[in-house]
Structures are given as C-alpha cells and as structure tokens.
Nucleic acid binder design. Structure first.
Length: 429
RNA sequence: GGGGGAAUACCAAAGCGGCCAACUGGGACGGACUGUAAAUCCGUUGACUUAUGUCUUCACAGGUUCGAAUCCUGUUUCCCCCA
C-alpha cells in the first residue's frame, strides 16, 4: 500500500487538506468519495483530475466512491458560477448517469472481488425520498445560516448583487448531507474534490461532527490551469469529451499532443499513471530535444489508450502522421478506403456530382459547389493566391486551373485549407 | 429640464465634398520559418468578376450637389457638463 498523500504531493495534485487526514489514512483502508455533476452524458477532460484522484486513492489500497449527483445536479452548485443553472429533468439525468458510469469503469476497478472495490452511488437514491420537513429538521438544524453565508461561493453571489435563489443556497447542505450519508452508511470518511469544492466539503465535515461527533476529512486538488492563462480543456470546437461520439479519438489525441511545453510536465503527472522515475527520465530527454515532444506524446498515448483503446491510439497516430507529417499523395493513396474514412472521420464532407466535377471550369468553381468549404469564391481565390490550399496534398497555385487531380479511391478529394483545416469532396453518381 | 459632443467594417480608431471599399492598431485567417509550438517576418480581411471593372456599405430616413462617410433637415441611440 503506497502513500496516497505522498503520491498526490509529488504529482502536484494536492491543494489543501484538513488536519489529521494523513494519520487517518495510515491506519489502513479508508473510503473516500468524489462527486460528479451529471450535466452531460459524458465526462470531459476537466473531470479527469477528479477521476485520477480516485484512481490514485484506489491504487493506494483504499476504497473510492464515485458519487453521481443525480439530486444535486437538479439544483446546481452556485460555486464560481454567476447564474443559476437550468434544472435537468429525470430522463436526461438517467441517461447522463449511465454514460458517466461507463466511462468511470475505465479508470476504477468496480470488481466485487476486490476488498477495496470502487463504488458508484447516486445521491438521488437517498435524497429523492427525503421530505422537506425531515430535511430541515435533521440537517438544516445543525448548520447556521451565518456559517453558510460565510462561504466564498455564497458570499460572492451576494456581493455581486445578483443574489442567489434559496435552492442554490441550500446546495451546500445537500452536498454536506451526502457526505454525512456516506459516512454513516459506507464508512466513508473523506471527501475529495476540486479546490472550488472546499467550502461545500467542509460543510459536510461540520455536519458529521455536529450531528454525531464524527471525524471526517477533506482533501482538494488544484484546478488545472494553462501556462498562457487560457481555460484548460477547451479547443475551438468546445470541450474535449471522453465520449468518442463527441470528441473523436483522433481529436482527443491531438489535444494532448498540442499541450505546451510549459504545461506538459505538469500534466504528465496529473493525467498519467507513469511513475516518478519514468516521468523524470522523460523530462530529461524532453529537455534535450524539445522539438520531439516526448512528454506530449507520452501523455497523449497514455491517456488515449486508457480512455479509448490501443487501436484508437494507433489510428490517431497514423492519422497524425498523414495529416502533419511530410506525407504525399502516395501516402494518401496507400490508405484503403476504410482507413481513409476513419482518419478523416468528422471532417466536413462536400458531395459533388461526377458530372459537375468533370465539367468544372476551374478549381474555384469546384470548391464553391456549396458553402461547406468557402463562403465565397473570392475567399477561395484569395486563399489559393496566398498559397494556402492543397488538394490531395498537392498545393494549388492557380485559381483558374482545371481541377485535374487524381481522385482517391476513385471517389474522394482531400482539400486542405491552411494547415489544419481538412475537407473531403465526395464525387457522387 | 438646460447646454455640448458622438454614432465608421469583428473590436478600437482615422477620414470631414471627389485621389474612399475607406489610414492605422488589435483580432481572425493564410504564407515563410519552426516542433502540428512560441517569437519573428510577409500577405489577406464587403460581395461578384477574366483583377485594374461592377454592385452593396460609414446609426436610420430624407435633401443639397455633376459627385457625400464627409454639407443640410428630421428620427433613434449613447456620452459629458450644468440643474
């Protein structure tokens, strides 16, 4: 059994913890929980820090509990949000919970043969039947309004003058009660969470102490930041999801590969399970040849395989080589149709009839068959004149030239607008 | 309520009768370089068109003029000062 706290500490995943937690953990197997909001049917990589925290907890021999906030998700945490959330209906919640559970199984061992098997609980199960009267009598009684108002999350909302609804105000009590419930019924003595959850977590420890004189602990992990100050986990396309339907394994792999040097050393500790020696060796190598981006590749590989699969990783690697390597028409043509379509999965497609392809006066006309690739012919012409357009990896320089480019698989043209924007023209008919 | 000023393309900001599709900066997008990076440099940034031409733009609606983003009238909105 390795030391959970030590592990988090060297990985830079320790933000704050309550006194006595180390001693408590040293006594033997403990149980900790961490909550996920079921706001979507998939987790995104922002959730990954929490998931990894639970993973380390289990690897340290302890029992992790993933709590899905079926009840709290109906309310919305006021922490660091400026406006109240829309309430989710039950049907959506059920779907979201199922999706999230499936993803958690890739990290945590839910096998019942383990003494420290992971558990998945849904606070809706114990909150749904809780009557208002019972709640204010059994829970509300122990926590003063003064205490609740002193929380940063609440204080901020009051100061901003927008106010917050009673429902939101109650959030910390519900979360506090979750902790109490798990403490009471699952012997769960620790709540883990992002640093923004600190206030909510200690409301729980407070409740446990006041209600039953019990001991409970809190531990938070830092919010992930980027060196350039922009928000972590976002691309132009939005969040990076774990669900391959929302973010393709290729895009997922690319996200990690594009992490900046400044962030890579931090992220490899947080998002992979590589041990300290391996990471330090990689860092050393990376420092000698930063352009090889060994750290980024290591993170991308580890995370992609875990979330998706070895095969998805291979595919992403292959796709990246074709898209960004010094690949040629031959490389493209060497792909069989199935692989080609997988590599370019998610790329916008513009269907063109074979007759209009054959009759096209020039490249621009072909490219502007509809608005998929360019909004106007002028735009297409300008880009071509600026040297920014390739078809099947061949740079087009003359907007008036006839589109005499061999089709891939007799059917496809791969259009490259700039370096990173790909489109496929499918010749039909 | 009285007085003054302003409204320009994604944003900021010039232009104040023809040389204005509109200076410049930022952003965005492309190119070169590179590590699918940062920094730097270069180009594009209303639409159409075989470029050197046409069409629609400078709050809105009218007007003056051969000709207006630029002058006049009205409308709307915003800002400042005095009450």
């Amino acid at each position: 059994m390795n030391n959970f706290i030590e592990e988090l500490r060297w990985r830079g995943m320790l933000q704050d913890m309550t006194a006595g937690i180390e001693e408590h953990l040293n006594k033997g197997k403990a149980t900790a929980y961490l909550g996920f909001d079921p706001t979507a049917d998939s987790l995104h990589i922002g959730h990954l820090v929490g998931v990894m925290t639970l993973l380390h907890f289990q690897r340290a021999g302890h029992q992790p509990v993933a709590l899905i906030g079926g009840a709290t998700g109906m309310i919305g945490d006021p922490s660091f949000k400026s406006a109240e959330r829309n309430l989710l209906d039950e049907e959506t919640l059920d779907r979201n919970i199922a999706g999230i559970q499936k993803q958690l199984e890739k990290f945590l061992d839910f096998g019942s043969d383990k003494p420290n098997q992971a558990l998945l609980v849904n606070n809706y199960d114990w909150m749904a039947g809780f009557s208002f009267l019972e709640f204010i009598r059994d829970v509300g009684k122990y926590i003063t309004v003064n205490y609740m108002m002193a929380k940063d999350s609440v204080k901020r909302r009051l100061e901003e003058g927008n106010g917050l609804s009673f429902t939101e105000f109650t959030y910390q009590l519900i979360q506090g009660y979750d902790f109490y419930h798990l403490w009471k019924h699952q012997n769960c003595s620790i709540q883990l969470g992002g640093s923004d959850q600190w206030g909510n977590i200690v409301t729980g420890t407070e409740l446990i102490r006041k209600k039953e004189g019990g001991e409970a602990y809190a531990l938070t992990v830092p919010l992930i930041t980027k060196a350039d100050g922009s928000k972590f986990g976002k691309t132009e396309g939005g969040s990076v999801w774990l669900d391959p339907e929302k973010t393709s394994p290729y895009a997922f792999y690319q996200f990690w590969l594009n992490v900046s040097d400044a962030d890579a050393a931090k992220y490899i500790r947080i998002f992979t399970t590589l041990d300290r020696e391996a990471i330090e060796a990689l860092e050393k190598e990376h420092a000698e040849g930063p352009h090889l981006r060994l750290l980024q590749k290591a993170i991308a590989k580890d995370v992609t395989i875990r979330i998706h699969s070895e095969a998805d990783y291979e595919m992403a690697l292959k796709a990246s080589g074709i898209l960004f390597g010094k690949s040629s028409l031959e490389d493209l043509a060497s792909l069989d149709e199935r692989t080609f379509l997988q590599v370019f999965d998610g790329v916008p497609v513009m269907p063109v009839e074979r007759s209009s392809y054959l009759n096209a006066e020039n490249v621009v006309e072909l490219l502007c068959t509809d608005q998929t690739i360019f909004a106007s012919k002028g735009e297409a012409r300008k880009l071509i004149q600026g040297g920014g357009l390739s078809i099947n990896k061949i740079k087009i320089t003359d907007p008036h030239a006839k589109p005499e480019i061999p089709l891939l698989q007799e059917t496809y043209l791969l259009v490259q607008k700039g370096k990173k924007n790909y489109f496929i023209i499918t010749i039909t008919g």
